[in-house]
Computed example of a mutant assay.
Amino acid sequence: MTAQTSTQAQVIPKFGEQKKAFSIDELKWLINAAKNMRDLNQAKGYLCSYFIPCSNPHGVFMWRSEIKNLEHIPDKNINKLIRPITKVFYTQSEQGPSQKVEFNINKWFMIEYSTVCVATCDPQKSRIFKLGGQLYLNIFPGFLHILRPISTFESTTHLAVKFIFSHIQDIWCSGDWNLTEYIIKWLAGVAAGRKMYSILYLKSGQGLGQRHYNRFHSAQRPRHSTRL
């Protein structure tokens, strides 16, 4: 395994794990502090924990730790973030004068760094995964709500869910429990992030939805008694 391959194997799992925002000054400091080419692995690792090249869509994905999300950046704009910071080393050869070796972090990332991903969206996969030898970047941002036991919800939430389920059974499905159960399971599949191979098609007469909306809010309106 080459030194470059070893570095890539180390940084790939760390992409998207940084807690602090990317800093060009931090990257510059790591490069300037390097005393040899091997020391540059720290700068490479830092850079690759925020950026990963992508072939589809073409460009670079950046991990935005402050919002815990990914941003797609076209290649033509990447120089604004990955500056062409250069470091020069002089290596002493056994025979003859010392040799000059120049390292450019932008050139290394855009040309020499061989890790290239394909973007996908799958709630059941990790941030970085391989399938059939292809490296994939999972851009799924995560679920809006955390899964909780039903017993932890308030009674008002239970009543609201019961109302929705009753509406599905009585209005959508005309009282057909088998159809109601199918729809509830279908909605649960969507909420769980499964890929659905069917769609729900609803059709009703004009104004039907508005009448049920008015009926619902009429039922929720508090009743007051007036004492004469």
Rank of each mutant, 00 (worst) to 15 (best):
S93H: 14
A21I: 06
N138M: 00
K76A: 11
A34E: 03
E26M: 09
K80G: 02
P97Y: 06
G59W: 04
K100L: 10
P57V: 03
W29Y: 11
Y113D: 06
K87W: 02
E112G: 14
C117P: 03
P141N: 08
Q124A: 15
E112P: 06
R127W: 07
G16I: 07
S114Y: 14
W63F: 04
E17S: 08
I24K: 15
P53V: 01
L70K: 04
G142L: 08
K87L: 09
K68S: 14
N36H: 12
G59K: 07
T86W: 05
F61Y: 09
G16C: 10
G133T: 04
K130A: 03
G133N: 08
P53I: 03
A119D: 01
K125G: 11
H58D: 15
M37R: 12
D75G: 07
I73H: 02
L135D: 01
P13I: 12
L131E: 13
H72T: 05
I78Q: 00
F15N: 02
K68Q: 15
I128R: 07
S114C: 10
K14N: 12
A33I: 10
F109A: 07
M110A: 08
Y90S: 03
Q18A: 11
K125N: 13
M62S: 02
V60F: 01
N36R: 12
V88A: 11
S126L: 15
R64W: 00
Q18G: 05
P57Y: 02
V101I: 14
S114F: 14
R127M: 13
Q99K: 14
S114A: 13
V116L: 02
F103R: 00
Y136K: 02
P123Q: 04
V60G: 05
I78R: 01
H58L: 15
I82H: 05
E17D: 09
G16Y: 04
P84M: 06
L47Q: 02
T115Y: 12
K14W: 06
R64H: 08
H58G: 15
C54Y: 08
Y90N: 10
D75F: 15
S126W: 05
F140R: 08
A33L: 12
K28G: 11
F51R: 03
R38T: 14
R127D: 04
I67F: 09
G45R: 03
P123H: 10
F140C: 09
L47P: 00
Y113C: 09
K107L: 09
N79Y: 05
K35Q: 15
Y113K: 08
W63P: 04
K19L: 12
E17H: 09
T115G: 08
I67N: 09
S49T: 08
D25A: 15
I105R: 07
